[in-house]
Simulated scan of single mutants.
Amino acid sequence: MDYSNNYTTTSYGAQGGANGGGFMPGSQSNGDNASTTKRGYGKDTLRPVTIKQLLDAHHPHPDAEYFMIDSSETTQVTFVGQIRNISLQTTNVTYKLDDGTGTIEVKVWIDAEAFGGEEGEGGGGGGKGKPVEQGYARVWGRLKAFNNKRHVGANIIRPIQDYNEVQYHLLEATAVHLHFSRGPPEQLDSAKGQGNGAAAAAANGGAAQQQQGGAGGQLLPAGTSMAARKVYQAIRSTPQSNEGLHVQQIATAAGLEMAEVLRGGDELMNLGLIFTTVDEHTWALLEING
């Protein structure tokens, strides 16, 4: 799953699609000037978001016509919410959506020439039914601001057919947020953790493999403290009975103060890597088979 600036998306079931965040029916909505539209095609993305993220988004500079979310330029967005109100105007249908993190208005412009008058009642439903009040819907569009009030100019809005999509969307929006705010969660952080573990092991006797390796070859998680790594290495490399090692033996083997050993042991227990045996101060590795 690649959430980089080249983030590509599925169409989420929308007719007309959004392959890579490109043109979708209705994107010629009122109020978009030609320069903004021309600029956006080259860098368009489609990002899953929550309404709170839309309300918290900011312009990178006063003249910008796009918004930043998690320090990343955001053009087209998609989100899921419950429709609290529908207002039919002469030129648009306005929906008020709530996703539990906030509320925002969504405007679908009525274009009788492009859609043969079908959207006047359906409100951009994309041929999959009509959005109704208190029902759930997915929206695709662009965040806009007018008179200091934000709304989404929607390309498509369609009712939710499978309510699992509501939870799925929130999970995906969270995953994308974590990617941009903390970096890739698996490959980069894991590699960094492995590199840190190897360097620490080399500085403490050259036992890199022992310090990094966990039960059954499991790597210690990125962010594990140095004290916990030393405690883990001491338990793993010191000869012992099936009762494990007492904290005093661990302190001697690891070259740590008792307080550091206890802190490191608590951390490893919370990670599920060691357990107590004959008493609370005697620890052994939790071996994971398979």
Rank of each mutant, 00 (worst) to 15 (best):
N5V: 08
N5L: 03
S11V: 06
Y12V: 05
G13W: 03
A14D: 10
G17L: 10
N19T: 13
F23T: 12
F23E: 07
S27D: 11
A34D: 00
L46V: 03
P48M: 01
P48L: 10
K52H: 07
K52I: 04
P62G: 03
A64L: 12
A64R: 11
Y66C: 00
F67H: 10
I69D: 13
I69H: 04
I69N: 05
T75M: 08
V80L: 04
G81T: 01
Q82V: 15
Y95H: 10
D98C: 10
K107G: 14
A112F: 15
F115V: 11
G122D: 14
K128M: 14
K130E: 15
A137D: 13
R142T: 11
L143H: 05
L143T: 01
K144S: 02
N148K: 04
H151C: 08
D162M: 04
V166Y: 07
V166F: 14
Q167F: 15
L170H: 14
L171P: 11
A175K: 11
H177F: 09
H179K: 04
S181D: 14
R182W: 06
E186C: 01
Q187Y: 06
A191T: 14
K192G: 12
G193F: 02
G195I: 09
G197L: 08
A201P: 07
A203F: 14
Q209N: 15
G213Q: 12
A215L: 14
G216Y: 09
L220K: 10
P221L: 03
S225R: 11
A228I: 12
R236M: 10
R236K: 11
S237D: 15
T238F: 10
T238M: 05
S241M: 02
E243S: 05
G244S: 00
L245R: 07
H246S: 00
V247P: 02
A251D: 02
A251E: 06
A253E: 04
A254S: 01
V261M: 07
R263E: 12
R263I: 15
E267I: 12
N270Y: 02
N270K: 01
G272R: 03
L273H: 03
I274D: 04
W283N: 05
W283E: 02
L286M: 07
E287V: 15
I288L: 12
